[in-house]
Design a protein around this nucleic acid. Structure first.
Length: 865
DNA sequence: ATACATACC
DNA sequence: TACTGGTATGTAT
C-alpha cells in the first residue's frame, strides 16, 4: 500500500508512525515501568495538526533525506576502501589508547530535579504531588513523581497535563535557583577551586588534587555535622521565606531514612555529639565525593548525584546513571557503561542516523568505525571514536570567555511592522544592558525570527566597528528586520519569536599580545604586534581602508562606533568581502587528538612547574618553524601561552609520513618544538617523549631535579642524540602499558573489548588513593578511630587515616548485609602493612570492597557484546 | 561571512 | 489557548 504524502512515513526502527523527534525520551530518567506507547499516543494526539507538528514533520523529512543521502554513499563504498579505512581507524585507535590518561579523578555533579526540588523544599504542599516547574507552554523540570507519567523537561505544560491531569505546574523562580546554585558552588570550590559550572545545577570538578591533599588530613577535617551550626545556617537560610525554616530543621534528621542508599555507612560512622550528629568521611575519592554530596544536602536540603571517572565524558555518563529510581548514589566506573549511543554530543539526529546504519550502542559504534569514518565528517567520526573508546577530556577546561550574547522572546503572533520594530528595539535595549554589565562590545549583530509556522530565520551583519549601546545595536537590527519585512512574500511577516544576538567580541582580546610572545617569536613574523597596534590606535581609519595591512593584528584595535562615526560620518561600516588576503589564524585547526596531546603537554609542564597559582608552564608549541638553526628557548614560567598546532592533521593517519608542518620537507625526522632540534625518528611516540623531557627540563629548576633516572646532567644537545635509546626502551614500556591495562602500540583492535582498557581504572583509582602520602605526625598520642571507637596503636596520621578508611568500608559492607564478622573486628593497621602491602599489591587486585560499598555500582556486561 | 542545523541544560 | 531561552559549534555555501 502506498503512503500518501510525507506524513505517513513509517519508521521500522521504532515500529510506530510517530515522529522520532517528538517521541518520549525514556532512556535517561528512570521510568522503567511506564507505558511508553500510551504516553507517545497522548503526545501525538495532543500535537497532531498543530503548526508545531507540521514543522516537526518538515524537519523530520530533512533528516530522512540526509539519511537517504548517507545510505547512497554507503552503497558506493568499495571493499578496498573500507579495508583502508579500517587500517587507519585502527591505527588511530591505538594511538588514542596510548594517550589514554587514567590518572585524573574527574567528577560530574548534578542536582536531582533541581528546580522542582527547590520548589518542593520550600512548599511542603507539593511534597507528594506530581509537579513540574514551568508554564502551560513549556516545562523546565519535573519531579520524580511526575516523571512516572512521562512528564519531563522540555515538554509543554498542556501536554503534560494530558499525561497527568493532577500535575501541579509551578512558575519558575530563577533568582532563587541562582541563590541555591551559589550555595552549592561554594561547596564545589572547596574540592576544586577551578570547577567548571555547566548550568545552575551542574558542574565538573577535578578531584585529583583534593584527594592527594586529603591523604594527610586529620579526621576532624573530614567530619561534618548533620546540623550545621545554627549561626551559619541562620545566615544561609535568611534569604528564604520564613516558613521554610522549621521545615529545614525537621527534615534534616530524616533525610537518610528516606533514602538509606545515600549514606550506607551512617549508623556506624555517625555519632551523637552535643547538639547533633556527625559523620566522618574517608580519604578516598568516593568518600570525598560522598562528603561533598552530604554537605550539599546539609546546606541546601537538596540532593545531588555524582559520577567519578578518569575523564569528563565518563564522569557524566556515571552521574546520569544515578537518576533512575530516585536513588541518590554516586557511581564509580568499573566498566565502560554507556548503553545507548545517546551520550553527550550525540543527539536525536545523530542517533537516528546511526540507527539507520544499524548502530544502537557504543559497542556497535566501535565495530563500525571504519564505515563511519567514510560517511561522516572528520569531527563527527572523531567524536564517535572518542565515545567508543570511552575517552574524554581528562582536564577541566578553564572557564572560557563568552562568544556571544543574545536575547529572544516568544509571543503571540505579531504581524504589524510597527510592533515588530518596537519589539526589536526592546530586545536591543535588554541586550545592550546585559552587554554593559560585562563590558562587552561586538562586531556582529544577528537577528533571529521565527514565523508563526515555526520556520526560523537568522540574518546577520558584521561591522568593522564594534557596537554596544542600544542605538548602535538597534541601528543594525532594525535594518535587518526591515529587509525581512519587505521581502516577505505573502505580505505580512507573521512572527512568533524575535531575538537579537551580538557576537565577535573584541574587548577581551586585550591581553592577547602578551600571550603571543613565544608563538610570535617562533613564527618570526615581520609584523611587530605592538607597533601595529599603536599605529591602528592612532589612525583607526587604516583598518577598514586596507584590510590586508591589519590581518591578524586587528586583535584589540577595533574602532568603536563613535570612532567610526567621527571618521566616516556613518553609524557603521559594512566590511567588504574578499579583502582579507592573509587568513592565517593564530591557532590553526587542531584535530581532537592534537588537542588532547597538547593538553597532556600542558599538564605535564604544569605539574613539573613550581608555580603555586596553578598557572602551569604552558609551553606554546608550534611546528611551523622555518629556519633550522634556532636556539633553545626557555619558556618563562609565568607566561601562559596557548598551544598552537603541534602536529598536522595528516601525520595522524600515517605515522611514518613527514610531518608537513614540522621541518618542511624533511621526511625522516621530526622537529622538537621546544628545543627546535631534529629528532631522528618518525615515530610520534618517541618524539612525544622527547618533547616531554624537554618540557620537564625547562620547567624544572636544576636543584629540584630529584629524579635519579633523569638525564639532567646531559645537555640538550646530547639528549637529542640519545633519542635512539628511547626506542630501545619501547619494548620495555610496552610491557608496562599492558600491565596497566592499556594496549601497547599496534596491538589494538577495535573489535577487542574496550572494557579491558577501562577496567584498569578501578585499579588505578586504588593506586591514586594509596599513593604514599605526606606524613603528618601527631606524635606522642594514640588515636581513637571515630568509626570503630578503638584506640589505634599508631601516631602516624597516614596509617590512621587508612585505618579509618578501611573501617568505613567495613561498615558499609556490614550495612549492606555483607561480611559481618569483619565489621565487628576492624582491621588493625600497622604502618608496614598498610602502605607496603596495598601500594604494591593493589593494581592487579579487584577493588571489590570499596566499590561495592559505595552503592550499586553500575556494571553492564552485556553492553559490549 | 552568512545561514542553518544540531546539541545541551 | 498553548511547544522556551541562552550559548556553542558544526556544516554548507
Amino acid at each position: 500500500m502506498k503512503m500518501d504524502k510525507s506524513k505517513n512515513i513509517s519508521y521500522k526502527s521504532k515500529g510506530e508512525g510517530f515522529l522520532s523527534r517528538m517521541a518520549l525520551n525514556d532512556h535517561k530518567a528512570g521510568m522503567e515501568g511506564l507505558d511508553r506507547d500510551k504516553i507517545n499516543q497522548i503526545i501525538m494526539d495532543a500535537s497532531k495538526g498543530s503548526r508545531f507538528y507540521e514543522n516537526e514533520l518538515k524537519r523530520e523529512q530533512q533528516v530522512n533525506q540526509r539519511i537517504e543521502k548517507m545510505m547512497l554513499q554507503k552503497a558506493q563504498i568499495t571493499e578496498p576502501q573500507l579495508k583502508k579505512a579500517q587500517a587507519q581507524v585502527e591505527k588511530m585507535a591505538s594511538m588514542l589508547e596510548q594517550s589514554r590518561d587514567l590518572s585524573r579523578l574527574i567528577v560530574h555533579v548534578d542536582m536531582d530535579a533541581f528546580y522542582a526540588a527547590v520548589e518542593m523544599r520550600d512548599c511542603p504542599e507539593l511534597k507528594d504531588k506530581p509537579m513540574a516547574v514551568g508554564s502551560m507552554s513549556m516545562l523546565s523540570t519535573s519531579n520524580y513523581d511526575a516523571r512516572k507519567y512521562g512528564v519531563r523537561a522540555a515538554m509543554p505544560g498542556f501536554i503534560a497535563k494530558k499525561l497527568c491531569p493532577d500535575l501541579v505546574i509551578v512558575p519558575p523562580n530563577f533568582d532563587k535557583y541562582r541563590a541555591v546554585s551559589n550555595e552549592i558552588r561554594e561547596i564545589f570550590a572547596d574540592y576544586d577551586p577551578h570547577f567548571q559550572p555547566v548550568s545552575l545545577d551542574e558542574a565538573y570538578l577535578d578531584f585529583t588534587d583534593h584527594v592527594n591533599h586529603r591523604q594527610s588530613w586529620l579526621v576532624s577535617s573530614r567530619t561534618h555535622y548533620y546540623h550545621a551550626s545554627s549561626a551559619a545556617r541562620g545566615e544561609e537560610k535568611s534569604e528564604l521565606p520564613k516558613e521554610t525554616l522549621p521545615e529545614v530543621q525537621d527534615l534534616s534528621p530524616v533525610l537518610f531514612e528516606d533514602s538509606p542508599s545515600s549514606s550506607p555507612g551512617l549508623s556506624a560512622s555517625g555519632a551523637v555529639v552535643a547538639g547533633g550528629v556527625y559523620e566522618v568521611f574517608g580519604i578516598s575519592v568516593e568518600e570525598a565525593v560522598r562528603e561533598m554530596r552530604f554537605r550539599i544536602e546539609q546546606k541546601t536540603v537538596l540532593t545531588a548525584s555524582a559520577g567519578i571517572a578518569p575523564n569528563m565524558m565518563l564522569a557524566k555518563v556515571c552521574s546520569d546513571k544515578n537518576k533512575p529510581n530516585v536513588r541518590k548514589v554516586q557511581y564509580t566506573l568499573l566498566k565502560l557503561i554507556y548503553k545507548q549511543s545517546l551520550v553527550s554530543g550525540i543527539g536525536k539526529v545523530s542517533e537516528k542516523m546511526l540507527n539507520a546504519l544499524g548502530i544502537s550502542s557504543c559497542s556497535h559504534l566501535g565495530q563500525r568505525m571504519a564505515l563511519l569514518s567514510l560517511l561522516f565528517s572528520e569531527t563527527a567520526w572523531h567524536h564517535f571514536m572518542q565515545v567508543s573508546l570511552g575517552l574524554g577530556s581528562t582536564y577541566i577546561p578553564r572557564h572560557e570567555e563568552r562568544k556571544s550574547m543574545s536575547t529572544e522572546r516568544t509571543f503571540k503572533e505579531l504581524s504589524k511592522a510597527e510592533d515588530q520594530f518596537s519589539l526589536c528595539r526592546e530586545l536591543c535595549e535588554e541586550l545592550a544592558e546585559n552587554m554593559k554589565t560585562e563590558d562587552l562590545k561586538g562586531k556582529t549583530v544577528t537577528l533571529k525570527l521565527k514565523k508563526v509556522n515555526f520556520e526560523v530565520k537568522t540574518r546577520s551583519l558584521t561591522l568593522t566597528c564594534t557596537v554596544a549601546t542600544v542605538d548602535e545595536i538597534f541601528a543594525v537590527a532594525k535594518d535587518l528586520l526591515k529587509t525581512e519585512i519587505e521581502n516577505e512574500s505573502p505580505q505580512p511577516l507573521r512572527l512568533r519569536l524575535m531575538g537579537v544576538r551580538i557576537s565577535a567580541f573584541v574587548s577581551s582580546d586585550d591581553k592577547k599580545p602578551l600571550q603571543r610572545s613565544i608563538v610570535g617569536f617562533l613564527r618570526q613574523e615581520k609584523t611587530d604586534c605592538s607597533v601595529s597596534i599603536q599605529e591602528t590606535h592612532k589612525n583607526p581609519q587604516k583598518e577598514y581602508l586596507s584590510h590586508h595591512t591589519v590581518q591578524t593584528v586587528t586583535l584589540n584595535c577595533h574602532p568603536t562606533m563613535q570612532q567610526c562615526q567621527k571618521e566616516k560620518g556613518v553609524p557603521w561600516q559594512i566590511k567588504k568581502k574578499g579583502l582579507g588576503g592573509d587568513q592565517t589564524s593564530e591557532e590553526p585547526q587542531q584535530s581532537f587528538f592534537q588537542r588532547a596531546y597538547a593538553r597532556r603537554l600542558e599538564r605535564q609542564a604544569a605539574s613539573s612547574s613550581t608555580d603555586e597559582e596553578g598557572n602551569g608552564v604552558n609551553v606554546s608549541v608550534n611546528t611551523c618553524i622555518g629556519s633550522s638553526d634556532q636556539k633553545c628557548v626557555e619558556p618563562s614560567s609565568n607566561t601562559r601561552n596557548s598551544i598552537s598546532s603541534y602536529l598536522s592533521e595528516k601525520d595522524f593517519g600515517e605515522a611514518h609520513a613527514s610531518t608537513s608542518g614540522c621541518g618542511g620537507t624533511e621526511s625522516e625526522s621530526l622537529r622538537c618544538p621546544v628545543c627546535f632540534r631534529r629528532v631522528e625518528t618518525t615515530n610520534l611516540n618517541i618524539l612525544n617523549r622527547h618533547i616531554d623531557k624537554c618540557l620537564s627540563k625547562f620547567s624544572r629548576k636544576p636543584h629540584q631535579s630529584t629524579d635519579p633516572d633523569s638525564e639532567s646532567d646531559l645537555d640538550l644537545e646530547n639528549e637529542c642524540k640519545v633519542v635512539h635509546k628511547w626506542r630501545e626502551e619501547e619494548a620495555k614500556d610496552s610491557e608496562e602499558l599492558e600491565l596497566s591495562g592499556v594496549r601497547p602500540h599496534g596491538q589494538h583492535s577495535l573489535k577487542n573489548d574496550p572494557t579491558q582498557a577501562v577496567s584498569s581504572i578501578s585499579a588505578d583509582n586504588a593506586t591514586v588513593t594509596l599513593e604514599q602520602p605526606q606524613l603528618c605526625n601527631d606524635k606522642g598520642h594514640s588515636l581513637i578511630c571515630p568509626v570503630c571507637q578503638l584506640t589505634q596503636e599508631t601516631d602516624d596520621l597516614t596509617v590512621f587515616n587508612h585505618h579509618v578508611d578501611l573501617c568505613l568500608n567495613q561498615e558499609v559492607l556490614h550495612e549492606l548485609g555483607g561480611n559481618t564478622s569483619s565489621a565487628i573486628n576492624p582491621p588493625s593497621v600497622t604502618k608496614s602493612k598498610a602502605i607496603g602491602e596495598r601500594v604494591k599489591d593493589s593494581p592487579p587486585s579487584p577493588p571489590s570492597k570499596r566499590a561495592k560499598g559505595i552503592g550499586p555500582c553500575y556494571t553492564i556486561d552485556r553492553f559490549f557484546r
